[in-house]
Structures are given as C-alpha cells and as structure tokens.
Amino acid sequence: MANDPREKTDEPGRDLRSERDEVLQRFTRGSSFARELLQDYEALEQRVRSLEGENAKLRATIEADHAVRDLLKKIETLELEKAELVSRFNRAEALQSNVSSRMSEAEHEFSNLANLFVASSQLSSSLSPRAVTRRIKEILAQLVGAEAYAMYLVNADGTELVPIASEGVPGGKLGPVRVAGSELGKVFESGEARVNEETNSNHGSPERPAAVLPLEIDERYVGVIAIFSTLAQKPRFSTVDFELFRLLGRQAAVALVGASLFMRAEHKLPGLEAFLDLSV
C-alpha cells in the first residue's frame, strides 16, 4: 500500500526532527557546560580550601613569628636582668670580700695593739728591777718569739756594753762588748735599731744578731737589747715586732732605771713636795 503523504505517522516531521536535534544538541551542550561548571566549581572549591589551609598556615606562622619575637624580647630582657643580677652579685661579692679583708685587717690590728698594750702595761706595773727584767725577757720571748737574747747597759765611762740579763746563750759566751768597732756599739751610738735582713731571724747568732735595738732614757742611749735568734717557727720579724722594739727601746730602760732608783730609795715613795714645784 502506498503511503499517503498526508497520512499520519509516528515519525516527526523534518522540522521537528531538526528542532529536536537542535534541542538535544543544546541540552547536550548545556549539560556539558553544566558539567564543566560543576568541575570548575569543584576545582574552585578545592582551591579555596587549599588557600584557606595556606592562609591558616600563614596566620599560624605569623602568630608563631610574633610569639618567637615576644620570646626573643623576653629572652633579651631576661638576659639584661641576668647581667644586672650578675653584676650586682659580683659587686656584693667584692664588697663582702672587701669587708672580710678589712675585718681580718682590723682583727690583726687589734691583736697587734693588744700585744703592745699588754707589753706596755706589764713594763710599767712593777717597781722591782728583777720583776722588770723578767717582764722584758717575757716580752722578748713570748711576744717577739726570741729564743736567744741579751740586754746590755753601758758602763760608767761609756766604753763598754755590759750584759745584765740573757736567755738562750751559754754564760761563757756573753761578756762586755766594746762600744767602739762593735755591731752593738754602732746601734748604741747611732740610736738606730738594726735588723739583719740577710738571713732568717731564727738563724741568727751572738756574732750575727737577728736584731739590735737601742735602749733610751730621756733622749740618751743607755744600752741595747740584742736578739741573737728567734724560735724555729719564727723565721722573720713582723710589723708588730718593730712596734714592740720601739716600745722596748723607749720603755724598758725607763722602767728598769725607775725600779732601780725606787729600790735604792728603799721603796720609799717621794713626798708630795717632790711634785709641788713642777711648774706645769
């Protein structure tokens, strides 16, 4: 049977077909475009997430940098504080050391003064020539540390020094010494103490005394004390020894002569009239 062109069929017309194709193409394109858009969107979303992550990291880094900067500042401040504390500590330590050293010096000075005070008070606390001599010997032995020594007084014509007391020297070795030409005589005549600095004081001898000091009364020299040697544990004289030498030089002979005069006066004290005409 021949088809009548006017007969109705299920097949669309040519226009419709092209229109359908067009719509389908458009749809396909739209769909493809939508897919692309979705892909782009997803890519963008990922990129945003990535950027957000980076941003967070950067923020954290910046914050960490801030924290590090703060910490560095703190460290710097602490270092300064530490330096200041160390400096203060050093100053305090130096001060403490200075105080300790001055305390030690003061104690040493006190000890020296105590020795001088005791020696002086002992010399002036007796009017017996024997007791005064004993005390002079005690000062020499106990305070100076002399082991062998002798005390000499000059004879009436001033030519010889005569030993009146000694310790640590055999009796036979000691006798009058001529003033002229002797070492003891030089000290007696000059009034200047002499200390042998060539050898240790504990190695001295009667021939080469460790020290010789003049004995003085009212600006006149009346004798000498010769320290021949000192104790083994005392190899050299100290500052206080020189002070003791000066004290002995000025006070020993005065005490001795005073005691002798008092004994000669049969222990009678002078009457008041002796002091009335002093014109002081």
Binding site: A114, Q122, I139, L143
Partner: peptide
C-alpha cells in the same frame, strides 16, 4: 703562769 700571756689570752678570748 705568765701574767702577761694570761692577760693577752684573756684579752683575745674576751673578743
């Protein structure tokens, strides 16, 4: 026994 040394020791120890 020595009065001088006794005095010195007492002096020192009284510190």
């Amino acid at each position: 026994d020595s009065p001088m040394m006794r005095q010195l020791l007492v002096f020192a120890l009284s510190r």
